[in-house]
Amino acid sequence: MDISRSTMDIAAACVTAAVGAVVCYGATLNGFAWGPSGPEPGYFPFYVGCLIILGSAGTIVQTLLRRNAAGHTAGHADADSFLDGERLRTIVAFFLPIVAMVAVSAWLGLYIGMGLYIFYALRVAAGFRTLSSLLAALAVVAVNFVIFEKLFMVPLLKGPILEAFGIY
């Protein structure tokens, strides 16, 4: 699965244009006229949204023109690849565990989330031995606990398991 750069350019521009549209819509909820004593709350956001749409449209047109031009001269327009299958897999393999860590953290607290994540990253992704991965994960949790809970008194999210053990 290859994604060409121009495809991605157009896709990203469509997303930003959609964001622009949302911003415009949101601004209309506040009123976007230039009143007698200066602009209303939605005035700036509305035109900011319009400019996002305009810039996105510009990018799309520019990309299409370039693609056509390249198509005429070189024959294969999509030589410039954004991402190929292998790289995509690498990225996903890196990113999904992070998402999983955040999901677990939201449920069981950040300390458990980060511990599991470090263990996974070292044991599975980096291929360290189970024992050293485990120790490293515990060390990371302990260091963070000392820094945040003890040194700076910033309570991180604990979750039900730690609370059951009396760690608040």
Binding site: A13, T16, V19, G20, V23, G26, A27, N30, E40, P41, G42, F44, P45, V48, G49, L51, I52, L54, G55, S56, G58, T59, Q62
Partner: peptide
Amino acid sequence: GSPFKTLVSMMLGFAAATVGIDTISGEARL
């Protein structure tokens, strides 16, 4: 680089800064 991309990037920054309660009107925006 592309002036369009610069424009989009800057305007997205403005939009992100707008989110929340507006100081002048006290209204919630975006």
